[in-house]
Design a protein around this nucleic acid. Sequence first.
DNA 1: TATATTTGCAACTGATTGGTTGCGGTTTAA
DNA 2: TTAAACCGCAACCAATCAGTTGCAAATATA
Lengths: 104, 104
Amino acid sequence: MRRDVFQAIADPTRRAILSLLAFNAMTPNAIAEHFDSSRQAISKHIKILAECQLLNQEQTGREIYYHFNPQKMQEVDQWVAQFREQWEKRFDQLDALLKKQKNK
Amino acid sequence: MRRDVFQAIADPTRRAILSLLAFNAMTPNAIAEHFDSSRQAISKHIKILAECQLLNQEQTGREIYYHFNPQKMQEVDQWVAQFREQWEKRFDQLDALLKKQKNK
DNA sequence: TATATTTGCAACTGATTGGTTGCGGTTTAA
DNA sequence: TTAAACCGCAACCAATCAGTTGCAAATATA
């Protein structure tokens, strides 16, 4: 079972769930109400997100609140960081070009 | 055919290819030499990366050089950005806690 | 206690994926 | 011109995935 963060955020529905939970913990039913998919389909997505620790559970009675775990998302950020220098370089080049045009 | 950046970087081999091409444009054969997979398997990964514009082609004779396109990777960065505040907040909290411990 | 709500788990299905093999087209070199 | 190198395309296969349906466990409510 391949279950890493990158595989988890590959699905648009799962990305939407993460955006939804970024600032509010929610129960599976509450989450499912925001989508057209069935409760089970959403529940499966939640399971995948929880397995790779992008979500944490907090059980209160029969309800389970799912919390977003920023630490895990940081892994994606750290991977993307290796390319950041590249687009900043290009931006600098564009910037220099624009300045040059302006001074003509 | 779902062909977006997130789906493209979901595969570990494709992520390795991107890291490889980040600073040097390379031909498919040269790329394939860095992996255990066959040339065709790598070629398929390259095709997917090119389709979602993470790679650009530059044909010179019978060789094709693939270049990394930072602009497209920025899309991932922009999506992750919405969560950045979260882990920075937590970091600040941890930082405050550590300072508090220190001053005891 | 009996019933309704919330939820996860298992089985099944159709679609997608990663990989292999074989082939043909184009460019370079002998 | 003939042979080799570089490369993409299409067909095929096993594995995985997203979604549905049915069910059982646990908790809350009447």
